[in-house]
Design a binder for these strands. Structure first.
Lengths: 233, 233, 233, 233
DNA sequence: GATGAATGAGGATTCATTCAT
DNA sequence: CATGAATGAATCCTCATTCAT
């Protein structure tokens, strides 16, 4: 690999001046942008730095993406929205129990997004959405709504089949969303989410949450309470 | 130069020369800064605006805080300190069921934190933790660890009394933490957490999550599954 | 004058770093801006250069004018619109013949605008209006409409008093506007308007045009033609 | 390397290899450039757009013109050349009154210049003269001088025949030139020349100006004034 | 000769920080 | 102490120009 260097500390792209890699450029820029956006946030990431990390000059970036914002949207599309489609279709073909479906949902979300760099985008957007309403709207449309819709569909399936009890889905979906989002945040703001020196094992975390949720939403076997008596009774 | 002795000074009432006691300045600045940092984030908050809201000039702010960064740290340090003491003591005297305790925990947390300015601080810290590791560590020690410890104590109480099943508490606590944190985030990044045009009713949200949690962690009434069969069975 | 230099070739302002001339700054900036806008056009004038010529830094300019466009508008207001008011009021008090009024109109316009640097703004705007519609609209409103209205009022006065014949004022006003605008343009694009090596004497130019106009718009003494016969008759 | 002799070349029809003869390229580029320069001005015209309109790539443009500036000069030089010859000869054969001649002059000028793309060139040159003195001189020699000379000859003819009064022709010519130039400018900077929402009808405009001029330059029927008395007399 | 990907200097604007008053 | 005028580094984006293919 004699050509192409990735100077991570210098803003000056190296290599030959004209390299003509039109096909490869967008992907290289997107990769560099994902890294930097996740690492430093949207506002703090300079486009020139993205270009430099991709091994091109500032101007080249604007050849492929008309603005920083569009660059960011493209990153989100590639890293999340794009994978959502494939993810969704997995569910179309799913034939097991709805419990398994929810299990699959949480675990595959983790593998496809949570465990990847893309998860940093979620944290980024939550942090900076207030300053970039357009980006928030974009993420909302491309990621949040489809995601909620999927979970809602799973829940509905479980209710219809008798696996789950009746619930107000508008609120119940967050029993799945919240732990997943929280897990992602704890990856990117460790000190803020997790007690010091403790790292969560994602698989165990998901299993733990999943069990509570599933137990918590199945049709009440008896009365919904076994809390009738205090600890001192 | 402890006092001024110029004759001309006698033209001015020597008592309360300045309307606002200068000792109050730092506090006013910190209050203003907290509001603005919460509202707009660190980067988007301009020091001039902070000064203006505190009723002083930009230059004066730099008299008390050597830089924007130090101002931020001071804001967080002051706002965090000892918030949990009072809350904790409420639980010492609690004599009801552990289910009620968890109910009280989540609801009073909502009233004391979620619905107040303090929630903005949580969001702020999560957003900026990456850029201020020192702050993250501080928050970790002052808030996260005590908070987790409290929930853990509640859970342990429930297990000991037989109200809750045995669980790996290292993971189970997040069934309470995650929905609460998520609720805070959705307050401050509405468009990113919630499907468009939908606002969560906090009381209903908490009730919904609480019921799932309580059902999800009580001792298994039968087998932990009623998902043995698929939806088509 | 030990302080304050006007480095016309360097962009670095000289003098002490903090000079505190708040009252004087806007005027100095406006003067510098007028010079440069006239000399180089709107697009080609760099704000930094304006600041430097006024002896301040780039940032200082934006302390007084929120944008390049507002700076330009302020220049127009100071150089033209502002004077239009005073000019207009001269006419309110005018008690002579309407012929004298028109004479005064053209000559005083020349003295107040045509012969000053402000005339360069007219040329600038005609050249660049296409690229800056907001500026064109502003000039239209602040300068063109009041100017046309004034001329129209003069004409109407002459018609009412019997000094001028009846005319379609929508078109007749240009018999005054066109020569004045042309005169201004010839100042700033000499080679394009005037035969080489010929400079117009403004007073004689105005007198010549004025006489033609006045003769051309007085009530027809006989028939409007003495062109009934060709040159060979 | 006058010709290529590679055998592989024989696979291609050696005759009309390129659709557009390369000799035509410069002309196509100049045409496209004229359109764009006129429409948007020099600075606002991008070379890439010129190339695109000419159907070639940006690189090709620089093959024929070493810089944007040279392209501009070439455009103007080509577009100006010899435009007035034909027009001039029309007047040689003219046998009517000089009033008719002036009428014909202004109206045919409108048809040949004012209403055509050439008018854009005039406006362009006036706008850019300051930045391209060489162009201004060229325009001066090719257009301004012959044009002024023609009008001057017409005026002289009218004076000689008694149709017009004696005048200082150095100044009187502008009574014709100014309205015509102004008309061109108002075509290309409508918002700047005309009160908002008002469009001039060229024929009526010319008729109006012509009548004033003709009335204004015919031999004084009485005294040159009927402004001896004020409006209140 | 053509192409079009790549370059990078240049320009408007923002804002934390300084310091003369 | 307090002020607020002044600074200038930093950042996004444009576009004339270059040159490997």
């Amino acid at each position: 690999m004699p050509h192409r260097h990735f100077p991570s500390d210098s803003l000056t792209p190296s290599g030959a001046r004209h390299e003509r890699r039109k096909e490869a450029r967008p992907g290289e820029l997107l990769d560099a942008a994902l890294d930097l956006f996740v690492e430093k946030g949207y506002a703090a990431t300079r486009v020139e730095e993205v270009a430099a990390r991709a091994g091109v000059s500032k101007g080249t970036l604007f050849l492929y993406f008309p603005s920083k914002e569009e660059l960011f949207k493209a990153v989100v599309r590639q890293s999340i929205s794009g994978r959502l489609v494939e993810w969704n279709s997995d569910f179309e073909a799913f034939s097991g129990t709805t419990c398994d479906m929810l299990d699959f949902c949480m675990n595959s979300w983790w593998e496809r997004v949570g465990a990847t760099k893309a998860s940093g985008l979620t944290k980024l957007i939550m942090s900076e959405a207030g300053n970039f309403p357009e980006i928030a709207a974009f993420y909302q449309q491309e990621v949040v709504q489809p995601g909620h819709a999927l979970i809602r569909r799973i829940f509905q399936r479980g209710i219809d089949s008798g696996e789950f009890r009746h619930m107000d889905l508008d609120y119940a979906v967050y029993s799945v969303v919240a732990p997943m989002v929280y897990m992602i945040l704890s990856q990117h703001s460790a000190g803020v989410c997790m007690p010091k020196d403790m790292l969560l094992d994602p698989k165990k975390y998901i299993a733990s949450q999943l069990r509570i949720i599933l137990d918590g939403i199945r049709p009440s076997p008896s009365t919904p309470v076994n809390c009738a008596t205090g600890p001192d009774s």
